[in-house]
Design a protein around this nucleic acid. Structure first.
Lengths: 226, 226
DNA sequence: CCGCGTGAGACATCGGACGTCTCCCCCGAA
DNA sequence: TTCGGGGGAGACGTCCGATGTCTCACGCGG
């Protein structure tokens, strides 16, 4: 095995063994490279790889630290990856969202805090108040609404998976099509219905309305890709 | 922004723009580093980061290639990351599996091919035939069974998410506990029930039995973590 | 026509040098 | 005594050039 890949595994093992815990600073590159028996150049490649998946956090002039290892950070890299997928994959990704998001909404119906509900209302009002036709803003708002519901489920992993599956470029591509057909109003109405069900604590209604919402976009997509 | 991070984004953009498509070979490190305006060392760090998330495939003595960018590859890195999580996180991960796997089983009930069903039978027979108490083998078999069902759903993303959420070390930790309590027999019986439902094409039964199966382990875990 | 050797080219790894940034100690002023 | 700024030590950022090793393909010879 290449020395760089070996170093990646060794650092991972140091974390698994508890030798390094979240927040710890790694030894300086020179010292660690000596210890692991490779050059500083090669070690830096290993560190960069672990930084990419948010396991390490490199601070220039200071040192390299183990991140909190929270799901939020660790699943973040997934978005980067989803960005690279083509249109064919979008349908499969939507099928996964169709599974995850209704479940998240159902859990939100019983777990959402008052603050989270207030935040959802804010998001909804933001797009209803003004007749802004700015696609970028609509996409941003839609993204946050779905993401906020997932967060209200109380499950960090679930929330981050939903986020990853809804990455920016994929959504932008879709919304461009939807807004062209003037479907924004119905989308907002569906959002309102979902929030209402969550506030009522009606898990099954929240689940159903979310599924309906996702399926509507999904159906449109299937038609559009023909 | 650091030159290395800039290079990561530039290479990503080259893929998004279609300048690089899956299977393409990148220019040699020297040439690409000149073109992107950074040193070969720094470029290598960028390449290593992209290799970590399976976007690039570096072949020594040959060249660096863009991978197929299939979900299988791109979500693979997720397993590496899940490995690093502590016991507290296992409960949240299980809550996600509880959402994903029943849905996957339901889809498998209508999508599974004859080959996939045969493979599932093989896996089941492998642990029933011999009274092997080897924990490592049981874990391996259980892993494959769950994974094979997810694959039978026909959705690559769903399948890989299930795989990522069931990473090796997490499972080993759990199974160590379960086998100690002699619960392997009931687990095998539950697997048999799930497969039966899938073969019958009974989506709802497949969904319910899978949920029951996952929830059983989940319940045990909750009790064990007190 | 088939192999096998060999050379060109690509990645792997190393060592060192220099730049820049961050943190923190220490000293002087209020 | 306390506050604040200067400066040095140390850490990461970047680059360069040399050498090792592996892969692939070309071309020679059987």
């Amino acid at each position: 095995m290449a020395v760089t890949d070996a170093a990646i595994l060794q650092i991972k093992q140091m974390i698994l063994d508890g030798e390094l815990v979240p927040g710890d600073r790694l030894p300086p590159e020179k010292e660690l490279s000596d210890r692991l028996g490779l050059s500083r150049s090669s070690l830096r490649e290993a560190v960069k790889a672990l930084e990419m998946i948010r396991v390490l956090d490199v601070r220039r002039g200071d040192g390299t630290y183990v991140t909190s290892l929270e799901p939020r950070l660790l699943l973040e890299a997934l978005s980067f990856v989803i960005d690279l997928h083509d249109n064919r994959a979008v349908l499969e990704i939507f099928a996964v969202r169709r599974i995850l998001e209704p479940a998240a909404a159902a859990q939100a119906a019983t777990h959402a805090t008052a603050e989270q509900l207030a935040h959802l209302h804010e998001l909804l009002d933001a797009v209803t108040a003004e007749g802004t036709a700015d696609v970028a803003q609509l996409v941003e708002n839609d993204l946050r609404f779905h993401q906020s519901i997932a967060e209200a489920s109380g499950n960090e992993y679930l929330s981050r998976l939903v986020e990853s599956m809804s990455s920016e470029t994929v959504r932008a591509r879709i919304w461009r099509g939807i807004t062209q057909r003037g479907a924004t109003d119905s989308t907002i109405e569906e959002h309102r219905g979902i929030l209402e069900a969550i506030e009522l604590g009606d898990t099954e209604l929240a689940r159903a309305r979310t599924l309906t919402h996702i399926a509507a976009i999904e159906t449109w997509l299937q038609a559009a890709s023909n």
